[in-house]
Design a binder for these strands. Sequence first.
DNA 1: TGCCAGGCCCTCTTTAGGGCCTT
Length: 236
Amino acid sequence: MSEPPRAETFVFLDLEATGLPNVDPEIAELSLFAVHRSCLESPERDDSGTPMLPRVLDKLTLCMCPERPFTAKASEITGLTSEGLAQCRKAPFDDAIVKTLQAFLSRQEGPICLVAHNGFDYDFPLLCTELQRLGAHLPQDTVCLDTLPALRGLDRAHSHGTRAQGHKSYSLSSLFHRYFKAQPSAAHSAEGDVHTLLLIFLHRAPELLAWADEQARSWAHIEPMYVLPEGPSFEA
DNA sequence: TGCCAGGCCCTCTTTAGGGCCTT
């Protein structure tokens, strides 16, 4: 198998949605932080040596009102409700969102690598579902990196089969706590979780960049989480 | 009443089971 193209921009991504894959969820909030490769290769650090967020950072965060209801748990942890989003006159994930997303990505030097935690099983297929519903596409050379299997794989390689890994948690908050000895801020807001994800990435940037260069998957290979039933569309 | 993901990983494994991870 040939190696993926070397990404020049990494777009860190998180979605908040109406539930888990078992309920065919819809996106209610998305957040993207775009960081050029050069800023990840040599991150700035504070006096204690902790990596800091790059100064040059494009951000995009949008809320949208899904057509289907939130599960109780999804509303509880995200703080989002259909009523609240509707009250603020938020439209669903529509063509305007797609255009904004595409414009955001077009500002970044390609190829782009989308980065999400558990992205292969959640964020990427869900975003793919919403884009497919609208007949929209991302740049053809876009690739994706899932930090969950990447970090597990890196740790496994380091442990050399000594079973040192045990039952270590690889949730976003557990990783952050392990690396920074602190609780992540604003958990389960899309922007908060992207912030946490980016700091986790920076903590192990050289390894993750090398992982991405070898193992990032083409966006074209991402399958939608679910396919919406065929039905008449009365939209103009 | 029953509806209620799924691929990956670990171990008390491989003829399997259970938990993680995302909202």
